[in-house]
Each structure stands twice: as C-alpha cells, then as structure tokens.
Amino acid sequence: MTSTHQPSEFATSSVPPVWVDEQQMQNDQRQTTFALQASGIAKSYVIGGQSRPVLDGIDFQLGTGECVFLTGPSGSGKSTLLSILGLLLTPDAGELRLCERRVDGLGEVERTLIRRERIGFVFQRFQLIDGLDATDNVAIPLTLDGMNLAESRQLANELLCRIGLEDHRHALPSSMSPGQCQRVALARAVIRQPELILADEPTAALDSQSGQSVMELLRELTTEFLTSTVVVTHDPRIYHYADRICEMENGRFK
C-alpha cells in the first residue's frame, strides 16, 4: 500500500498535506495522461559481497504537469528511485515508461539522448560548471541539442532576466549566493522545457527564504511549461508545494 500526502492547494498553501489512500490516488491518475509510469521497479546494491535491496517492487505514476515529492529517511531509496526515473541508473527489474515510451531497457547512448531531450535535473549542490558564467551554464542543454552558442546564450539570458538574475548573467558560480546558484540550476533544468524535472533535495543547501523562493520559481516554471516534477526532499517547509507526497521506507512506499 502506498501512502501519499495530498496538499489542499499547490504552491501557496501552508496547510499540512492530507493523507489519501492509494486507490483514490490511482483512480484520480487514470483520468490523466502519465508523464512517467514505473511498475515493479527493483534495485539492489552489492555491499560487502552481499546483495542489499534498495528498491523493492516500486510502482509509481506521475501525471503530466504533476509535482510529486518523494520523502523518507536516509537510505529509504529516494535518490535511487530518482536516478532510475531519470535514466541515470537501470533497474534490476520492473518497467519504466516515459511519456508512454518504454525506456527501462535502453542502452547508454539512447538513455543519454532521452536525458538530454526530455529530462531536466536540479541537484542539491547545484552542480553548476565552475568555469562557465550563469548564462553559459543555463545554455548548456540548448547547445547540447545543437543550437548555436549565440542563440542559446540569448535564450538563457532571457530566462535569467525573467527569474531576476539579470545582474548575474555573467557571474561565475563562485561569485553567486547559494540561492542564486540554485535559481541558475533551475533555469538550466527548464530551459529546454523538458517533459520531466527531477530535483534532488533542491532546498537542502539553502536557507528557508531562498528555499521557498526556489520552490516558488520551480512551480511557476513547471506549471507554465506543463512539466511534470519529482522532488526528493527532507524539507517539510516546502511540502505545501507538492501536488502529492510519497513517503518511502526501506525501498517501498509507506
């Protein structure tokens, strides 16, 4: 049985999430188009010569434009699930579909292409490229896609201006605050308007105010681009930004 939180309003509500049961959630989701469908996902790591299951038959669906938070204690398998959903890891068993296309058995080259074209990542430590200024960091996904540098810089600049970083377009990551870095990382994740955004503890390295600001921006952009979002977080202060919260424990949903 999967337990989920269902916040009453998204993005602006401070009301605690409401617990809903799995059946109700699945009924709701059947009426939507799924951006992501995972069924029976299992993953084990070999540690000290012994196989240790990290994910144990996870079923997970994500509606188009939906924002789902994965929560749970450390070691519960959140990040591993996020990696599998983002095609960074391959599951040992189970089936994964991204926008109706089965992607769990693809080779490395195809998975790389799908990540490039359809998935945006937001990392806990921003993971900006130190040698590139904000504009060039944001422009990376566009140029990977073949867009010329001038054009991609122009689009990146427009997005940076929009998210309030017009004065930091030429700033290196080392000269920006953590909040600004995460906004740049967010811009990098959404600039291609991917179908899916995966965020791994996006507010963990930020103070409360910056965290709220980043989450508001994330919801604003993903809503505008109709992007589905999965956020792994420990931060209860941002739970109200979720459409749904899935809590994990020992490789399963609670």
């Binding site: 490039r116 993971q127 490229i129 990977l144």
Partner: peptide, 15 residues
C-alpha cells in the same frame, strides 16, 4: 563531479 553532471544532463561519453 562536473563531468558527472554533464553526463547526467545529456552529454555523451564521446562528447
């Protein structure tokens, strides 16, 4: 870490 990030966001091994 940067290379891993680039690989994650879609840079191929050949690139």
């Amino acid at each position: 870490s940067e290379y891993a990030t680039l690989r994650a966001i879609g840079l191929s091994e050949r690139e």
